[in-house]
């Protein structure tokens, strides 16, 4: 039993090891919470409410269906927008990777879009469209599309030419080529792209909900601002943060399963 862990120390017993991992995972949040709690001792509650109050507000939101529905609305909008951007982005990326002409045409447009602030899309969406949900979907797609597309293009370009030739030598159909080589090759980058864009989308969505949504986290945040309720504002914000953390965790589980074929070095970088 002289195996070494990544930091070069000898491994402790599993229980202590597990507890240590939990502590390490929670430490940053404990620190943030403690800092806030200390601030709440020195500032009035409407600036820095106690975390206890925030905790009860969070529970409130989770317990009351009428409020929790707002969280689900926002989650649905994030996922719909990301799914839309991903599908469109994947199609654009395949075309760009296949043809220099298409790439030279689309790249500048996407880069141009990347420079447009989310708030500008909100204004455009309000002027151009009627339906609230469609406006939000439009904003979500356009703000996440460029990153998705560029990430998939670079994954396609980075595919091993050796493996492409190997697979080509078996004369596969296009579908076979895609299923057996392209998809598994770019999957790591796709999952990373989802993780990155998820964070972006959760920040954009509350802005997008300013287009006149009568529900959702963005709408609720606006309400809290009007009644100057800091505990409420924080509780609603945390709902989104929790959602992002949960989905990131699920994506990590998928990664661990999908990339179990990878060699793991016993030395860290």
């Amino acid at each position: 039993m002289s195996e070494r862990t990544l930091d070069g120390t000898s491994p402790p017993t599993p229980i202590i090891d597990g507890a240590w991992r939990v502590v390490r995972a929670l430490a940053p949040f404990i620190f943030l919470g403690a800092a806030w709690q200390v601030a709440s001792l020195f500032f009035p509650a409407f600036l820095f409410p106690s975390l206890v109050a925030v905790f009860w507000r969070c529970l409130d939101i989770l317990e009351q269906w009428s409020q929790f529905v707002d969280v689900l609305y926002t989650v649905g909008r994030i996922l719909a927008g990301l799914a839309g951007a991903f599908i469109i982005g994947a199609v654009l990326a395949l075309m760009m990777a296949r043809s220099k002409l298409v790439d030279g045409f689309l790249s500048p447009i996407l880069t141009f879009f990347q420079g447009i602030p989310a708030l500008s899309w909100v204004v455009f969406a309000i002027i151009w469209f009627h339906g609230v949900e469609f406006r939000i979907f439009f904003i979500m797609v356009l703000t996440t599309l460029p990153a998705f597309t560029f990430q998939i293009v670079s994954a396609l370009r980075a595919m091993s030419k050796d493996l492409v030739e190997m697979v080509m030598s078996f004369r596969p159909s296009r579908v076979q080529m895609f299923r057996t080589l392209i998809l598994p090759s770019i999957l790591p980058e796709i999952l990373t792209a989802w993780k990155v864009n998820l964070g972006n989308a959760s920040r954009v969505v509350v802005v997008a909900e300013l287009v006149g949504a009568t529900g959702g986290v963005g709408y609720q945040l606006l309400q809290q601002q009007q009644i100057f309720d800091m505990a409420g504002a924080l509780a609603w914000t945390l709902q989104l943060v929790f959602f992002v953390l949960i989905v990131q965790y699920i994506l990590t589980l998928i990664e661990n399963f999908a990339f179990r074929y990878r060699a793991i070095s016993e030395r860290s970088l």
Binding site: D162, L163, E165, M166, S169, T180, L181, P184, Y261, R262
Partner: peptide, 12 residues
């Protein structure tokens, strides 16, 4: 059928 200089196995 081809055998290449390097094995070119699909790592997954």
């Amino acid at each position: 059928a081809i055998v290449f200089q390097n094995d070119r196995l699909l790592p997954w």
